[in-house]
Nucleic acid binder design. Structure first.
Lengths: 200, 200, 200, 200
DNA sequence: CATGAATGAGGATTCATTCAT
DNA sequence: CATGAATGAATCCTCATTCAT
């Protein structure tokens, strides 16, 4: 091997290019140029364009899962655990805007890109939220009426849509702290004011 | 199919085809076949493929906005108004799976597809949520700390992600009522149990 | 349809190009240029490059079979029938050098080009020879020891190899009459001189 | 495989691979794998892919020529000499099916593959037949009307086409003895029955 | 001598778009 | 207005060849 880390360089380059142009508009030669290698070299490391997209997901999400799992080990208060997930997710998305873009737009159509791809790693990722909620219910701090499988979607969807704004230059950009605090506030205690609840 | 005008038939056909195959994978000839017209005829009604995608959005979202606005006119309780938005949105997404798919996946990359397209109609749609929240704050029923522009994203993201599952056959399919009720419960009163709140 | 006979024009052009460059070296754009159409137009008439090669065979051989069959109908002397086949074959090969080249070189590897293609039309063509020989045996003019299925190969091989020289500029070019007369002389009465036979 | 030299191993491997896949479809890496060496090693022994094909011919045909020449030295009856050529050729083709395939299909397009290559070795090979026929004419056992340069093609073509069937699994497979005997019978004494000749 | 990672030119095929009918 | 045959630009991927190790 003449140069090291070709695989990693391709992943990084692809993430960037997919984010900028989108999967379909991105050309293999764009990725190769970004990674400063020849077009053909890409095919020494990946089967085809789809394979690159899937690998971008898998590798980054796997890293994120490990990171989050590590942080959650030290905590058993479900409220704080949700906070950790939110902060970690938003930080990751803000840090790697390219990957964020890929998650937010390409993720949605991956199943159309690669019919066989079942995206189990991503499911494992959002199931962390379901687990936290379930744990909270067992500890009696989260309502029993909540369906964790539904709530995990709502929570992830909220985070995802909020972080999506960071990749669109149209709106005010909130900080990770603001966004994370607002989402937690909403999900934990609700939009309603305490006094209005009493009157219900 | 009724003898509707060609324009509408193309929109309907395109929505279906984009949903099934995705914007990039969909071919003009697929849309033409679905609409039972010749390929060239499409160009009498639309400038190009991008134009069709944008029109699909604009027309459907515009209809949805009108529908929601109409319903909201009769109501001024912000809690109930949020419920109306949620139910309307989820119902529309469940009813027109094709459009849902387009919103959920193609919408995300529209700004890459058509750089000039700024998607103001879609912004108007989710701004309905911001308006409701703002109204709630003025009436004193929603917390002042909530930033409407952030919360609107969280709320829409939650709805969107929950409804997205309906287009993936992997998970349990909840009803519109279940999903809407759960999301409202979460957003209005929070995940935490009343007793746990007291102890905070 | 704006211009007629695109199909035929592509076949003619492809025959020429395949003959000149060989199947693998020929580019689709060469064929398109030769046929004075756009590259993409070829795909309105043929599935792919292989399909063109097979079609070149099938169509020309089919024509040749009809021609030969027609001529043979009027004759029932097996010796003369062999002569008709030889003359027709050699004439066709000399007239359409391009097709001759394709038969002689590409035919041999067609089964490597298209695994599924079984080339039954070509088999039907050389089976004409087997039929003639068989008929000759029934009439008692051809030896019973001859195996028609083997002899058909020998006869066709002789014709084919002799006509192959016409496409190589290295050697003396015989006329169709010379070649046909020589091959018939050899196959009908043998190389040996009558007197030498008596001494055997 | 014995520890033979690399050159020979490449030739053997290439013969096999060319036979199976054809020259154009064969990849250098296929040959390298078959020869159990690295791709790059091939270029220490051959200039390029064409060079390998030519070498495959040259070396095998040269061997065959020597073999046939040796056998023919001991014989001066032209009839038996033709028999020796036929038997040797067919035996060689049946023994080395891979080489047979290469001769039968790739040989035909070699002049397109390598314009400069004039294939004189192959010409020397079939000229053996011309020489035998010429010798027969001088001895008065072969007809004077026969043109040796044409007859050599007919004879070789017959052998070639008959042996070609061995590489196609569609038809009855004759033994070398059957095939050789039939071809000799035909070429020496002709297809016609002795009695039919008298009546001519 | 041997390796095999890297190269990058080349080509079949697709499909949005045009326009003669 | 409608058609659909024709266009040809665009791109993924292959693979012969090179060369640093």
């Amino acid at each position: 091997m003449r140069a090291v880390n070709k695989h990693a360089r391709i992943i990084t380059a692809a993430t960037k290019v997919f984010a900028k142009k989108g999967f379909f508009t991105a050309r293999i030669s764009d990725i190769a140029k970004e990674a400063k290698i020849a077009d053909g070299t890409i095919y020494l490391y990946f089967d085809n364009k789809n394979d690159i997209l899937i690998s971008v997901f898998e590798e980054e999400i796997t890293k994120l899962i490990e990171l989050v799992h590590n942080d959650l080990k030290k905590e058993d208060n479900p409220r704080k655990m949700l906070g950790i997930f939110a902060t970690r997710h938003l930080t990751a998305m803000k840090k790697n805007k390219y990957f964020a873009e890929v998650v937010q737009s390409e993720l949605r159509q991956t199943h159309k890109v690669v019919k066989e791809y079942r995206n189990t790693t991503f499911l494992a990722y959002i199931d962390i939220v379901a687990d936290i909620i379930h744990q909270g219910q067992e500890q009696g701090v989260f309502r029993q009426e909540i369906i964790p499988d539904l709530a995990k979607r709502a929570f992830f969807g909220a985070l995802d849509e909020v972080s999506r704004v960071w990749n669109i230059s149209l709106e005010t950009h909130y900080t990770v702290e603001e966004a994370s605090q607002q989402i937690l506030l909403t999900f934990l205690t609700g939009l309603e004011t305490p006094q209005s609840k009493k009157t219900l």
